[in-house]
Amino acid sequence: MKKVILGMAAMAFLFASCEQDPNQTIVEEQQEAQVDMSDFYLYTDSSDEKRSENAPEKCYSMKNLNRLLNEKKGLHKKMYDVEAHTRKILAKKPDGVGNGNGGGGNDGGGGTTDPGDNLGVVNIPVVVHVIYSNSQENISDQQINSQISVLNSDFAASNNDANNVPSEFAGLVADSEISFTLAEVRREANSRTSWGTRDDMKYAYPPVSPANTLNIWVCNIGGGILGYAQFPGGPASTDGVVISPQYFGTTGYVSAPFDKGRTATHEVGHYLNLRHIWGDGRCKQDDFVADTPESDGPNYGCPSYPTVNCRNTDMTMNYMDYTNDACMYMFSEGQKSRMRTLFMDGGARTGFLN
């Protein structure tokens, strides 16, 4: 009997020693939930001092975001939560892969080795809404297919010009493991010749299944604007990307030097939560990606290498800069990690996996 009692006592001790202290669990959960959001921002002045007066406005996404923040109550909180979720996931990766708070420099915020997220290749169905007032704007199926092809090659780092990346950044070129499939083309004749940037085209022709479909409206925006996108967290009724027809795809009704489909690559980057490479600010404004160097503004044309700002070599060939289509040809590993957090549990675009 004594042996039985001693045995039971030993088992009770063992069970107690293995059971985790509830208070310890709470502390660990609180620590896991805490991420540094001190550098988070949404509003920008969206000024573009480097752009010449007559040059096209490459991207209207940040100005569109400013407008939505003013109009949509609760949007700031939603986008804050999207960013916090992204940082929690990236904080678990070795050396904080892809995380911000590193000043944006090559040596800030951690390394770039990504152990993988077990998602595999994420496929995004695409619905293209062609809204036209004349035959030129009613772009061909061939032109649409050429754009889908560019998206697939650019996001897979299989583009032919990827080998132009200088050795300084060559090790950062990323296959995002995101692919695109054309699901449907919707053609809409409309006498309106310019649609502007207040999402009128989306209200006239609403998005198809925005939770699990990328909607792209191809229509004349006007004002020399190439395109704009909505960031994750915005209203479902306006979710997607808008691009003027002459900057969509690589053949047909296209206009140089933005005739290689990179406007869509850039805008889909925004749709997947990437900021402009310079962070829409000066040297201390971050794009929340550790392996993209700090810069003080966008680059245009085809800059010479190296182009140095903020004591760093600019990654001018990154898709999230403003250079000509022929002179941008990479996403970084940090940008890949950032995009893919959207598809993970609790992410803003998990609908693509369901």
Rank of each mutant, 00 (worst) to 15 (best):
M1L: 10
K3P: 00
A10E: 10
L14H: 07
A16H: 12
N23G: 15
N23P: 00
T25H: 11
T25M: 14
Q31I: 14
V35G: 03
V35H: 05
M37Y: 09
F40E: 00
F40V: 02
D45F: 06
S46K: 06
K50W: 10
K50I: 02
N54V: 11
A55L: 04
C59D: 15
S61R: 07
M62C: 15
M62L: 15
R67I: 02
L68G: 03
N70L: 03
D81P: 01
H85M: 03
H85L: 04
T86C: 13
D95S: 15
N99L: 14
G102W: 08
G102L: 03
G103S: 07
G105Y: 03
D107Y: 15
D107R: 14
G109N: 06
G111C: 04
P115E: 13
N118I: 01
G120K: 07
P125C: 11
V127H: 06
V128R: 06
H129K: 13
I131G: 07
S140M: 11
I144Y: 13
I144S: 07
Q147E: 13
D154T: 03
A156R: 08
N159Y: 15
N160P: 02
N160W: 05
P166G: 02
F180Y: 09
E188G: 00
A189V: 04
N190C: 11
S191F: 06
T193S: 14
G196W: 09
R198C: 00
A204E: 05
P207S: 10
P210H: 10
A211L: 14
A211T: 12
N212V: 02
L214A: 08
N215M: 10
W217E: 00
I221Q: 08
G224Y: 04
I225T: 12
P232D: 12
A236P: 05
V241A: 08
I243P: 00
G249H: 07
T250I: 04
T251M: 13
V254D: 11
D259W: 03
D259I: 01
G261M: 00
R262A: 15
T265W: 09
T265Q: 04
E267C: 01
R275H: 11
C283M: 01
D286I: 01
V289L: 07
A290D: 15
D291G: 09
D291T: 07
D291F: 12
T292P: 00
E294R: 14
P298Y: 05
N299H: 09
C302K: 06
C302G: 06
Y305T: 04
P306S: 10
N309T: 13
T313Q: 12
D314N: 13
Y319V: 02
M328P: 00
Q335L: 02
K336I: 05
K336V: 04
M339Q: 14
G347M: 05
R349A: 10
N354I: 10
